[in-house]
């Protein structure tokens, strides 16, 4: 079983190849978690909403999602992107179902009412967290049943909050939690670079226990992927691979040693 996550940028650049690659792997059982932050930002701007990006003290960039933004976020993620991906696969004979974490409560989360950020002056500050959530539970049993029916499961990164609210959850974090719940063989995080680069060199392998020590040397965006990959492997996923989602068959990289492999200690 493979859990694949592709970020919005690589998906926009190379969607058909990524989806064809997923189609080719469907015999293994595939859950596909998609991103799409850039697309959400475009739609927000079109609706007159200026996206707000905040940075956590450890350098993680994220979207601050207020009441209006969660509406756009959900429309773009669960509506536009999830259904476009589903349409592409189903039109080519791959039975796929597009769900958000809200559906059947597949992904439940606790709303973070307050979050800590580094503000524009480089000072730590607590602010209202809006509608982002920390994942508390993934229904692995339902996902296993859907995969058992031969379906490719597409998941949009929107979670069900404790008070029934929609919550923005990061796609890498969602993919990590889904992979852990399924005890997947592989978690594949497809991105727009070759893998984890440190001092200009591709890192071929990282053991879970080494991941935290490397985070400082890894750029924003990639640091979160490494954290989430290591977390999934710590929780029983066979391995995680962070690799490029470019080219004709991105998932072939899982077998040819490309990218960065995160393995158990």
């Amino acid at each position: 079983m493979i859990v694949v996550k592709a970020g919005g940028r690589v998906l926009e650049n190379n969607m058909t190849n990524i989806l064809n690659s997923i189609a080719a792997q469907r015999g293994h059982g595939v859950v596909f978690v998609h991103g799409g932050g850039d697309v959400v930002s475009r739609f927000e701007k079109a609706l007159g909403i200026e996206p707000k990006i905040v940075v956590s003290p450890s350098g993680i960039r994220s979207r601050l999602t207020d009441e209006r933004e969660i509406e756009v976020y959900n429309m773009v993620m669960s509506g536009k992107l999830g259904k476009e991906i589903s349409a592409y696969l189903n039109a080519r004979g791959v039975r796929a179902v597009s769900l958000s974490g809200v559906d059947a409560g597949i992904i439940r989360a606790q709303r973070k009412k307050r979050i800590i950020i580094m503000d524009e002056r480089g000072r730590k500050r607590i602010i209202d967290g809006g509608y982002t959530g920390s994942i508390t539970r993934v229904d692995g049993e339902l996902l296993t049943q859907l995969l058992g029916m031969g379906l490719v499961v597409i998941i949009s990164p929107v979670a069900l909050g404790e008070e029934g609210e929609l919550l923005n959850i990061d796609g890498d974090t969602a993919a990590s939690a889904v992979a852990a719940a399924l005890k997947a063989e592989t978690l594949a995080l497809l991105t727009d670079v070759e893998g984890v680069i440190i001092d200009g060199q591709l890192v071929k392998k990282i053991r879970c226990g080494e991941a935290n020590a490397l985070l400082e040397k890894i750029g924003a965006g990639m640091n979160r992927k490494v954290m989430m990959a290591a977390k999934a492997v710590e929780q029983g996923v066979g391995r995680a691979v962070i690799c490029s989602g470019e080219g004709p068959d991105p998932l072939s990289r899982l077998e040819d040693g490309s990218g960065t492999e995160i393995t158990p200690d």
Partner: peptide
């Protein structure tokens, strides 16, 4: 006293 606020983030 600052309450424990974990780092957290969305997409």
């Amino acid at each position: 006293m600052a309450e424990e606020v974990a780092e957290d983030w969305g997409e």
